[in-house]
């Protein structure tokens, strides 16, 4: 083995070249088989362009009350305020539990590690590293729609 390698280093041989070619072909074939397999594992995106989702029974909410719903797979809290509606992501930016709206304190509380956010989603206390993102709300003919980008 060693002797042959030494000989190969000295001068290219037909045998050495063939070994090299077989190695190259194996790597290329291996890559050609692996890459589609890896891409297959990548989750395919779901859903098309952003669309408005109606909040069911929004008119039934009294000021200070909230409802939770799923908009294109994302949990969203809609809060009825004196002046109108706001929509905010319910997914705690710490580790993904769903926050709850506390109407009397006007804050969002996370049940998992006690993060607290104010009514605009800014962090008040606790371990959350970032504010809760807010979403666009529309009122049309007494119906309330949320859209998440």
């Amino acid at each position: 083995m060693n002797k042959r390698m030494n000989a190969m280093e000295k001068q290219p041989t037909r045998r050495g070249f063939l070994d090299w070619l077989i190695g190259l072909c194996s790597v290329v074939t291996g890559a050609a088989l692996t890459v589609p397999g890896l891409l297959y594992l990548w989750p395919a995106a779901r859903g098309g362009a952003s669309e408005d989702v109606e909040v069911p029974n929004a008119s039934g909410l009294a000021p200070g009350q909230s409802a939770i719903l799923q908009v294109r797979g994302k949990a969203v809290i809609v809060v009825r305020e004196q002046t109108g509606f706001t929509a905010i992501s319910a997914v705690c930016t710490h580790l993904g539990c769903l926050v709850k709206w506390d109407g009397s304190r006007k804050e969002f509380l996370c049940p998992c590690h006690a993060a607290v956010f104010d009514k605009n989603g800014a962090v008040v206390s606790g371990p959350a590293p970032a504010p809760l993102p807010t979403y666009r709300v529309k009122e049309v003919d007494g119906k309330v729609y949320v859209s998440v980008a």
Binding site: L69, Q70, C97, L98, C110, P111, C112, P127
Partner: peptide, 23 residues
């Protein structure tokens, strides 16, 4: 229920040391 997080979720005992350390 993807729309309600229960109170006090904890992992299995073998994850508790990591769970606690992270806090």
């Amino acid at each position: 229920n993807p729309l309600a997080t229960p109170a006090h979720i904890k992992p299995e005992w073998y994850f508790l040391p990591s769970y606690q350390l992270l806090k």
